[in-house]
Design a protein around this nucleic acid. Structure first.
Lengths: 159, 159
DNA sequence: CACTCTATCTGCACATGATGCGAACACGCA
DNA sequence: TGCGTGTTCGCATCATGTGCAGATAGAGTG
């Protein structure tokens, strides 16, 4: 997504208002690579602006998503996750702590697929499920932390 | 998943009981390519066995999934979908009617991926989003129907 | 066939994520 | 400063799932 300043301009130009709540969310989302849930953003926002409504967070996320400034994903862990990275990329999800990281798949657009007859495709999502380095070291880790990745790359197709 | 008869034997051999409810669900799921939700199965089951509990449907689906007889997927449409096809395959989802179809992706296991450092991957899901033939013809179709696909194949990578 | 043990079924309460609605509020322009 | 309309907020509501406990009924045994 664009910077908070650019978004503010874009909102005003579209006749939308730039409220403190929206500005706060712009800042919290900009360059945010943690793929936060609405609830996580609400928690962060509440620290800087006690009293902000969860409803407003949802509303703003929905608006930004429909404006194309955010992408939303559901990895089956109960809550929708939002990603300000709207470029072409895919994801890897830790099945232990549910941390999400961006991955880049070469030739993802050139896959040879059987069974698409009749469908007009406009988006392809590839999601890798596995265990992150931290959870591999601490089997029962549950608290996601910011970016941190290290060794032992591995890939496979198990379904 | 295996046939109702095979599942019944397998259940008994494992000390699990073969109840009419389970047998009904075995039948409803066998060779079922519609990727039903728990609620959809409950609706089907209720017709043949009025009084069956939604709780029992959920329980049985969970059991079959943990036994490896079913795969479960969440495509972000609100409800988990179940698939008796436990072989290696992927999916295409209609963004209009939410119909789900199986697709087969060549070389899905050989993708060249950047960003997996630190992760140990055990499963890769590829989901194509688009519009099915029926919804292309009838823009506002909302009622999923059994299998039916035809022309105009198209693929892309838009995110 | 009756008996018994125990897995299962069922109904309801509850948890969580998300949305609809209406009144009060405040951004942005004149 | 004043006004109009888009926003915010809080609460009710919906939907998918899960936890719990008593009633029920497989399935092996005598």
């Amino acid at each position: 997504m664009r910077s908070p300043a650019e978004l503010s301009s874009a909102f005003r130009e579209s006749g939308l208002k730039v409220t403190p709540q929206r500005q706060l969310l712009f800042r919290l989302l900009h360059d945010n690579a943690t793929h936060p849930t609405a609830d996580a953003l609400y928690a962060s926002a509440s620290q800087q602006m006690p009293g902000i409504s969860l409803r407003t967070v949802y509303q703003t996320l929905t608006d930004l998503t429909s404006m194309g400034e955010l992408q939303s994903f559901d990895f089956g862990n109960g809550a929708t996750r939002f990603d300000p990275n709207v470029g072409s990329h895919h994801h890897v999800v830790c099945r232990s702590c549910h941390e999400v990281a961006d991955v880049y798949v070469d030739a993802a657009a050139d896959l040879d697929v059987a069974g698409l007859e009749g469908f007009t495709i406009d988006r392809s999502d590839i999601v890798f499920h596995g265990v992150c380095a931290r959870c591999s070291a601490t089997p029962h880790a549950t608290t996601p932390q910011p970016t941190s990745q290290t060794n032992s790359p591995t890939t496979g197709d198990m379904p």
